[in-house]
Amino acid sequence: MAPILEFDALRLAYRARGTVAYAMNDVSLVVGEGEAVGLVGESGSGKSTLARATLGLTPRRIATIESGRILIGGTDVTRFSEDQWQAMRGNPVAMVFQDPLSYLNPVMRVGKQIAESVRAHAPGLAVATRVVELLSLVKLPAAAADAYPHELSGGMRQRALLAVALGCEPKLLVADEPTTALDVTTQAEILALIRELRERLGMALLLISHDLGIVASACDRIYVMYAGHTVEWGATADVFQRPAHPYTVGLLKAAQAARNSEGRFATISGDPPNLSELSPGCPFTPRCPQARAECRESMPAPSPARNAGAQTLRCWAHR
């Protein structure tokens, strides 16, 4: 069966007022039916552009796909028109965002917004019953249907947005930093809810976050992105327990926020990449402790990790 989502060597550039930024440089990613996939990256990695691209939401005026393909359920959507994209949004692909308040209609009651998404994707269904069902699915009290978004707490808003998304009965839920604006205790509740929903509804999940812990706790497989490249991917246990790419290793150590024997915090030297400067080599080279001559020349093809892990990565040190 075709995977629900596939990025194949995608390159996407933003052009505005004479500057170019390659937000996605060479991205390959697959999400299978019912699979939970995590995408980890820092600012400038291109992960948010990827999230938008799964719904055809990259601004057409300035964004161009220069090469590669995007496939949804086996259909090539790379050159889809706005109308064609409209038919894909909600079902099969729905999305929840970091800030639910900007995606919920502020002057419409939550119940009505859920009902609208139900009506749009499953006409003829008993809408009122379905709304009640969805509310209980995301563990919101039935009374929340009569509330306006601003009357709900941050966590409840995210639940409401989830209910709207689920009303479309998506095969794939894309969650872009869904808990970043929330407190840790609320974050834990939302993550538990997303896990549970996935199991009950059997939908696939693409969870995008800068927080490694969140992704590790919710996903079967992980992709690590750096400067518009997918640099390492594989089973969560492999990538996070036995990281192979120097960037993943550094990122994981930094995320531990633990001190080493000399009392120092782990860190990666240098600054995050500048996306408007495109070099043929591996973009991590200037910050990499294992950089060698060929790193500056070209980006290697994917190859299996040479440590104990079963993941794939793009790194000259593992060729």
Partner: peptide, 20 residues
């Protein structure tokens, strides 16, 4: 206790000696 428990735990990666 609740606060500490809510933080997703990330196990220390193995063989990460390339960084000091």
């Amino acid at each position: 206790r609740e606060l500490v428990a809510a933080v997703p735990v990330l196990a220390a990666p193995e063989a990460a000696s390339i960084y000091r």
